[in-house]
Design a protein around this nucleic acid. Structure first.
Lengths: 159, 159
DNA sequence: GGATTAACTGGGCAATGTGTTCAGTGGTAC
DNA sequence: GTACCACTGAACACATTGCCCAGTTAATCC
């Protein structure tokens, strides 16, 4: 579960050049191929690396508008609402949270006008009491993990 | 920019079995290898597929707590705040939004107690007026893109 | 109609990487 | 000191890649 410096370097390398092979990695890292292979297997079975799925850009697919909707759910309707939202393709992510809202929902749409359609579809469901939406304007820090990986590797080394 | 059915199937295949090769894909899809290769190249230079970086699970790295912080920024301090937050490894994502808050910030921490440290570090910066935090409890719909890809491919076909 | 362009097919080639196995080595825990 | 574990370096058959080509199909333009 804790990763060491070599694990960290493997992950960083993979993030920078995803199409790199195990052999090339071993050359860059100065270790034997079997070592890299074993580390990779371990990282994957650990669940640290979940996979290598393609990172698709919704904007390039024709969905340049992103928004977050905070939903308040009627008592006991949680499961139904989740099932409902899971059927909406424009719902990219759904989280339950503490605080004022009960759920936080990441949406995309083809345009600001289209966002209305998406929101209508999202909230057009009985268990949802109230929804408030915030449109994303900029994304100064796109979803990232490398700094955290480096931090985790550093923590491990300093032990 | 618009993707057709074959593009969609390629992306779905890649998402399901990321380690699959071009040759195996061409077999599964019943098309020539060169076709798959050309489509993949196009999808990548289009920006539809951004890359194949490893998907790292923060929880498995020792950061099982996720939270969203809504930040209010002092006028004109936006750029400084962004630069500040970019230096915090536990900040996985930062977005500027419309609505009550000015920024939305995705955080992780080693524990609920550790979250306090992270938040202190995040808001311990002059340009931030107010912060409110919501801790994520469950993640009923983890970040996904496949349904949207299928929708986009369907839209294209129906033209 | 005829020509042009773009996309796909199916094939072949050398080069490279993969999965796997093995024996040997060093460090560490008990 | 023994047992265990991770790493090394090497080997092997095999599959895949990157690249090239000629021929087909389909759509578009003149």
């Amino acid at each position: 579960m804790a990763i060491d410096h070599l694990d960290g370097r493997i992950i960083v390398l993979l993030a920078e050049e995803p199409r790199i092979g195990v052999l090339e990695m071993s050359r860059r890292l100065g270790v034997a191929r079997g070592t890299v292979q074993a580390r990779l297997d371990r990282l994957q079975s650990n669940g640290v690396i979940r996979g290598f799925g393609p990172q698709v850009d919704p904007a390039a697919l024709g969905y340049p508008v992103t928004a977050f909707a905070t939903l308040q759910i009627r008592q006991g309707q949680g499961p139904d609402v989740r099932a409902h939202l899971a059927t909406v393709p424009e719902v990219l992510e759904l989280l339950t949270t503490t605080g004022t809202g009960d759920m936080l929902c990441r949406l995309v749409a083809r345009s600001n006008a289209d966002l209305q359609r998406v929101i209508d579809r999202v909230v057009g469901f009985d268990g949802i009491v109230r929804a408030s939406t915030a449109i994303v304007m900029e994304n100064p820090v796109p979803l990232r993990i490398i700094p955290l990986v480096e931090q985790a590797a550093r923590d491990r080394e300093e032990t």
